[in-house]
Design a binder for these strands. Sequence first.
DNA 1: CATTTAATCAATGATAATGAAGAAAATAGG
DNA 2: CCTATTTTCTTCATTATCATTGATTAAATG
Lengths: 111, 111
Amino acid sequence: MRSREFLGHHELMVMLAVLRLGRDAYGVPIAAEIAQRTGREMLQGSVYAILERLESKGLVTSRLGEATPQRGGRAKRYFALTAEGSRQVRETQRALEALWHGLTKTAGAKP
Amino acid sequence: MRSREFLGHHELMVMLAVLRLGRDAYGVPIAAEIAQRTGREMLQGSVYAILERLESKGLVTSRLGEATPQRGGRAKRYFALTAEGSRQVRETQRALEALWHGLTKTAGAKP
DNA sequence: CATTTAATCAATGATAATGAAGAAAATAGG
DNA sequence: CCTATTTTCTTCATTATCATTGATTAAATG
């Protein structure tokens, strides 16, 4: 197994968005949450591709919801993190913060 | 231009390591710093590949040092962030923290 | 010439970006 | 009713970029 040691950047972002959205985590709002919070757009095609990859790696699960009574209210596919997914998110956060710690203020100050 | 919107994960880590190391930022210690802080090894081949890519994107610069009077003390190639590199590091940090903010404690609590 | 430290290469695999197309549901107009 | 259109959500195909690996080259000293 060619184990990637860390989550990809976008993988992490998608998982964080899923966490934030809780039971409302499906494709469209996930992309919107990322766009809104980071200020940069992430195309839906990317989001879905990432979600599929994450699911195939066992980091998220999905369940199909029911249609809602509103125009265009077709069934949504809801996502949630698995235990392993949560673990990897924490682990990645930890690794980044370790490199980052104490650096926040100097990150732009180059002599 | 097919502009990646965010730095890759490893790109970010390498740049943070360069910042931490300051004037001692060359290949070997960069890899060591990452390994030590994150607890995961990053092969030197990877580090150099990433540094080259970053340089070609104008996010880091390099200068060749002189040989030092010690066994195997061949000339080192020192790296530093450019202004644009610093900017992108800050920007990526900001984006991640925005998604992450307020979530640290719940990142493992799934009902 | 053996050893040490540092840097580079070549080849492959994994991740991400993009734009468009497809599928399911609800309203509207006849 | 019933079918056409609109809305929302998802999937697909293609191409580009990023990352991994292990070996190799290079330059210095003992």
